[in-house]
Structures are given as structure tokens and as C-alpha cells.
């Protein structure tokens, strides 16, 4: 029973991180119709920046004066940096390509992925960075005879509130209306006086922020390792294929399905852990080619 509870928490933890990444990927596709292959690497950048900040002199100073709360406040810096990087990438690298065929988008974002992987290694070196101080400060909760890291609950909560916040933002605010209008018909939105260029920058930066936030909150629990972005990009694609590219609900449901199926695979069928996710994606594609919540 204890194991059962912990594995469910593990699944929610993983789903929270996957949702943050997939939601950003989906948002960017929904608005700009760009499949951003560099998205996973933006997640990695968020992880590295946050780990670096927490481990730096600033981190030590803050933990000295403000303690744990200060460290937690430092974490989102990674997400903010990634959003800023996104705000530079969109107008410079992506905007000239919107009228070109999709292959150009894939080539440019893939090139960006390669460059950013090298930039990360150049800036932070090949040795993994960690922000384990936060985990240690928060300790663990006893569950039955086992323990569960308290910080992981923070990650789950962050994923939950990010989902609600993003939903509210897109469906309940004026900016959300503009965003949805632009995504449905760019020319009409532009004719109605919406500054489409600015909306694009904002949407792209928000998508990047989500990816960066995913990296920032995962890094205390794991480590910033070279190549984490690649691994996660593949899983984020499985999530959006299952949920439907461009759909926020799809990203949420997809993340939960992928995460729970993966955990069940690990617990009960370790030999086919790798295959089981792709089997699900295949099944969804056969039944609903646009994904569970996708638009045709």
C-alpha cells in the first residue's frame, strides 16, 4: 500500500514536469504553428541557470539571510532567463520563417537545439550541477515505513497551479482572447488592429517560461545533466501526440497518461518500459489522429 501511494506521488511529480514542458510546446504551436525542437533544450537551460544560481554565492547569501524561502524564490530565475532568451529568439530567428514551409522551422529549431546544447556545456561545463540544498532543507515525509521527499510535493503543487493559471490566463483574460484570436486567424487579428508581432513574442516567451520553469523546479530533485533536454523533448512529443498538439487540456491529460503508464510499466512490466509509451501513442494516433483533444 505504501509503495502504491509513493508510486502515485511519483507519477504526479513526473506529470507536473511533463505538463510544464508540453504545455509550452503546445502553446507555441497553437499560436505560431511552429514545432519548436529546441524546446527541451530551453528546459535544460532553465535547470542549469537555476542550479547555478542556487549554488552560487548569491544562493549562499540568500539562504543565510532568508533561509529556505529565499532559495525557493531564487529557483524561478531560471524560468525568467529562459523567457528572456525566448523573447530574443522569436523576432530574430523564427519570424523570418513563418511564411516558409515547415521543414525550415524544423531545421532552424533543430540547429538552435544543437547550438544551445553546446552553449550550455560551454557555460556550465560537463559536470552535473545540483541544487540539492533545497531538498536537504525540506527533508522527507514518512509514508508508512518509507519516506517521501517533501520538495516533490512542491513540484506537484507547482504543476497543478501552473495548469490552473495557464487556463485562466488563456480563457479568462483579455490577453487570452487576443492570443486565441491570433491563433485562429492571424490576418484577421491583424486587420482588427492587434499587434501580431508583439503577441507572438509574448506567446513565445510564455511558452519558454513554462519550459524553463519545468527545468527550474526539477533541478533540486534531480540534477542538471547535459542532454536532459533531449530526453525530455521526446517525452513531451509523446505527451502532445497523445493529448493533441496545440491543446492545453491535451497537454494536461497527455502528461498524466504518459506519467502513470510509465510508472505502471516500471512497476509491473520492467522489460517493456521503453515500448509501452510508444504503444500508447500509436494506439491514440490510430483511433484519433489529431490526439485526444486535438483539432483537425
Amino acid at each position: 500500500m505504501t509503495i502504491f501511494i509513493i508510486q502515485i506521488l511519483n507519477s504526479f511529480f513526473y506529470a507536473a514536469v511533463l505538463f510544464l514542458i508540453a504545455a509550452g510546446l503546445s502553446l507555441i504551436y497553437g499560436v505560431m504553428r511552429i514545432v519548436n525542437l529546441a524546446h527541451g533544450t530551453l528546459y535544460a537551460l532553465g535547470a542549469y541557470v537555476s542550479a547555478w544560481v542556487v549554488g552560487s554565492a548569491l544562493g549562499h547569501a540568500v539562504s543565510g539571510t532568508l533561509g529556505l524561502a529565499g532559495l525557493l524564490l531564487l529557483l524561478p530565475i531560471g524560468a525568467v532567463v529562459v523567457a528572456a532568451v525566448g523573447a530574443v529568439i522569436e523576432p530574430t530567428l523564427l519570424r523570418p520563417l513563418y511564411r516558409r514551409p515547415e521543414e525550415y522551422h524544423l531545421l532552424v529549431t533543430f540547429g538552435l537545439l544543437m547550438i544551445m546544447e553546446d552553449v550550455i556545456k560551454f557555460l556550465f561545463g560537463p559536470t552535473p550541477l545540483t541544487a540539492g540544498l533545497i531538498m536537504d532543507r525540506m527533508g522527507s515525509l514518512p509514508i508508512g515505513l518509507l519516506i517521501y521527499p517533501t520538495y516533490n510535493l512542491v513540484v506537484i503543487a507547482t504543476g497543478f497551479f501552473a495548469a490552473i493559471g495557464l487556463w485562466w490566463f488563456i480563457y479568462r483574460t483579455r490577453f487570452g482572447v487576443i492570443l486565441r484570436a491570433t491563433s485562429q486567424d492571424r490576418r484577421m487579428a491583424s486587420a482588427l488592429g492587434i499587434n501580431v508581432g508583439r503577441v507572438y513574442i509574448q506567446a513565445f516567451a510564455i511558452g519558454c517560461f513554462m519550459a524553463g520553469l519545468g527545468g527550474a523546479i526539477v533541478v533540486p530533485a534531480q540534477a542538471a545533466v547535459l542532454g536532459i533536454g533531449i530526453e525530455v523533448l521526446v517525452l513531451a512529443f509523446v505527451v502532445v501526440v497523445v493529448g493533441g498538439l496545440g491543446s492545453l487540456e491535451g497537454a494536461l491529460v497527455g502528461a498524466l497518461i504518459v506519467s502513470f503508464v510509465r510508472t505502471a510499466g516500471i512497476q509491473f512490466f520492467p522489460e517493456i518500459e521503453l515500448a509501452v509509451l510508444y504503444l500508447i501513442a500509436t494506439a491514440v494516433l490510430l483511433v484519433r489522429p489529431t490526439g485526444l483533444f486535438g483539432r483537425a
Binding site: 509503495i3 508510486q7 511519483n10 511529480f13 542532454g227 533531449i230 530526453e231 512497476q267
Partner: peptide, 21 residues
């Protein structure tokens, strides 16, 4: 118990829990 994570995975929580179980 056996766990076979993919090479390059950084999330081992489920594997760790399973091994301990």
C-alpha cells in the same frame, strides 16, 4: 526486482521506489 531505465533518463523515482518495494 528489475528496473531497466532508458539510457539518458534523469527521473529514477519510480525505479527507486520499485527496487525498495
Amino acid at each position: 526486482s528489475e528496473g531497466w531505465p532508458k539510457l539518458g533518463t534523469t527521473d529514477f523515482t519510480a525505479h527507486i521506489t520499485k527496487a525498495m518495494s
